[in-house]
């Protein structure tokens, strides 16, 4: 499975008394894109967090981009980007500072980090808000900055958890464009969303979850 973006076997995750994922087996080839659907509480977020190694599965095996998750998470984390419900942003830092911290952490020098952050802010349309603290941002602007954070890492596997949430129609359009660009660059995508039509247009594969199990999608 060398060319698999991820490969999970019998992965289960429990939160206390219930299993949020139950014996899920799936794999996705590199360069493909996956639409992840399911009702609220079906386990989409849980699956994405496990793929991002933010959580470890209670049971089961997981290989992401050729790395076994039990042999160290850092090689996986280097190449995976997660756009989560939480924005991971520091409220009291400016938009630019938030990006610069991440850029330095992935190994850029200070000069590179500054330039990259500026380029990224332009790309997500926040250049004018460069020096405003995130606390003053609207939900949509936060989402865009969070996307900037994701793009900055140049992930090989991008995990997008409800990227259209909290966005107005125009924002949804822009987000679709960013995701399409990402896919065009050869990034493997996993897209969890309730907007099935938009999702289908952006992806090639489909995984539908119900109560943490894989079922064939009806629609």
């Amino acid at each position: 499975m060398a060319d698999a973006a991820f490969h999970i076997v019998d992965v289960s995750k429990r939160y206390g008394p219930r299993w949020a994922l139950a014996r899920l087996t799936f794999s996705l080839e590199r360069g493909k894109s996956l639409l992840l659907t399911g009702h609220n509480g079906s386990g989409k977020t849980t699956l994405l967090k496990i793929l991002a190694t933010a959580m470890s599965p209670t049971l089961g095996k997981l290989t992401v981009l050729g790395h076994d998750c039990h042999e160290g998470r850092e090689p996986i984390r280097e190449k995976v980007g997660l756009l989560s419900h939480a924005s991971f942003l520091y409220e009291d830092l400016t938009a630019a500072q938030n990006l610069v911290v991440l850029a330095r952490l992935i190994g850029m020098t200070d000069g590179e980090a500054d330039a990259t952050a500026d380029a990224m802010l332009t790309r997500v349309g926040l250049a004018k808000r460069r020096d405003h603290p995130v606390r003053q941002f609207s939900a949509g602007m936060r989402k865009r900055l969070a996307v900037g954070r994701l793009l900055l890492k140049r992930p090989e596997l991008a995990l997008l958890d409800e990227p259209f949430g909290e966005l107005d129609p125009q924002g949804i359009g822009e987000m679709e464009k960013l995701i399409a660009e990402l896919a065009a660059q050869g990034t493997t995508l996993v897209l969890a969303t309730h907007l099935v039509d938009q999702g289908k247009a952006l992806t090639t594969e489909r995984l539908h979850l119900e109560e943490g199990r894989r079922v064939e999608a009806r629609a």
Partner: peptide
């Protein structure tokens, strides 16, 4: 409090 693995059923 802790769900047992038996509750998972057979592998898919």
């Amino acid at each position: 409090e802790v769900a047992p693995p038996e509750a998972l059923g057979a592998p898919q």
